[in-house]
């Protein structure tokens, strides 16, 4: 089977740039173009229009008490919900990866429900359950605990939407965690708690932070699942995204954009900080 000339050889096409696989220019071009049209241009143009407001106008728009209250409410509840999610996420991920129990597959699949369920549906469902006359709400009412239409209800909705993020970041890390590490710690005389604290927790810590960051980021901007349960009282239970919608309905475009800019900037800074923290934690875990 020495090389035969049965096939005509392609003549050198001049535009061949060598190297990798075909279709690079086409696929990258399409990707960048559509990303620019659908995502980048709306974001850039929208933000650019916020500059119409000028610094003074911007400052005035975002320092109104109602705006400040809404921003504070959104960020604080998202942070608390993120922290709760991180803890609950570790618990769920641990139980799902370590303890076989009947129905585990179903539970595992159910974790993703908040991701697949439309937020408006989640909102009305949570509200009907936690309203004072709802299934769980009426159990809490005699205890003087009001959930729906209070910040507590907002937090609950945010925990709901953030749950899959917290579980799904920790779960694969726990799954891949070499059990020999725990066995080694045990042979070295560590108690189970010491092992968890000194071996397992440092290994999953970056993932826990990621889960927190994702749940937090999602929570700050969440709208659909919150507005039904929040009560939407200005200064008390009005979240920032809702205030944006309200301002839009009053044709206060500048005011709405100002809030959006603050949300984007703070969310971006928070995520950046958490990313750095996480990188630091990851390095430490890598060294350990």
């Amino acid at each position: 089977m020495s090389a035969t000339a049965s096939l005509p050889l392609a003549t050198a096409p001049g535009r061949y740039r060598g190297g990798g696989l075909p279709g690079f220019g086409l696929s990258l071009g399409y990707t960048v173009t559509s990303l620019t049209l659908v995502v980048l241009i709306p974001l850039a143009v929208g933000l650019w229009q916020a500059t119409d407001l000028g610094w003074g106008g911007f400052w005035h728009a975002v320092t109104q008490p109602r705006v400040l209250a809404a921003l504070r409410l959104s960020f604080v509840t998202a942070a608390i919900a993120g922290a709760v999610n991180a803890a609950v996420g570790v618990l769920l991920a641990w139980v799902l990866t370590r303890y076989p129990f009947p129905g585990r597959r179903v539970v595992d699949a159910l974790i993703d429900l908040p991701f697949a369920l439309p937020t408006a549906v989640a909102g009305i469902a949570l509200t009907s359950v936690y309203a004072p006359n709802g299934w769980i709400g009426q159990l809490c009412a005699p205890l003087g605990l009001r959930i729906a239409f209070t910040p507590l209800g907002i937090g609950l909705a945010l925990i709901f939407v953030g749950l899959p993020f917290a579980v799904r970041t920790v779960q694969p890390v726990l799954e891949n965690l070499d059990q020999e590490l725990e066995e080694a710690a045990a042979t070295l005389g560590a108690s189970r708690l010491q092992t968890l604290w000194r071996v397992v927790l440092p290994a999953i810590w970056p993932a826990v932070l990621t889960g927190f960051a994702l749940a937090f980021g999602r929570g700050v901007g969440e709208y659909g699942s919150v507005i039904f349960i929040a009560g939407n009282m200005p200064l008390k239970t009005e979240i920032a995204p809702l205030l944006i919608v309200t301002k839009l309905e009053q044709f206060d475009y500048a005011g709405a954009t100002a809030i959006a800019v603050v949300m984007l900037v703070i969310a971006f800074l928070c995520l950046l900080a958490i990313n750095l923290l996480q990188r630091w934690a990851g390095r430490r875990a890598g060294l350990a």
Binding site: A3, L7, L9, A10, A12, P13, G14, Y16, R17, G18, G19, G20, P22
Partner: peptide, 29 residues
């Protein structure tokens, strides 16, 4: 094979006297 492109300034590549530097991996057989 044509899966990597040599740096600019590299000399030509011949198979049996025919220059193949400009051929893609697909056309080099």
């Amino acid at each position: 094979a044509g899966l990597e492109r040599p740096d600019a300034g590299s000399g030509p590549l011949f198979f049996h006297g025919q220059e193949v530097s400009g051929l893609s991996a697909r056309d080099r057989r």
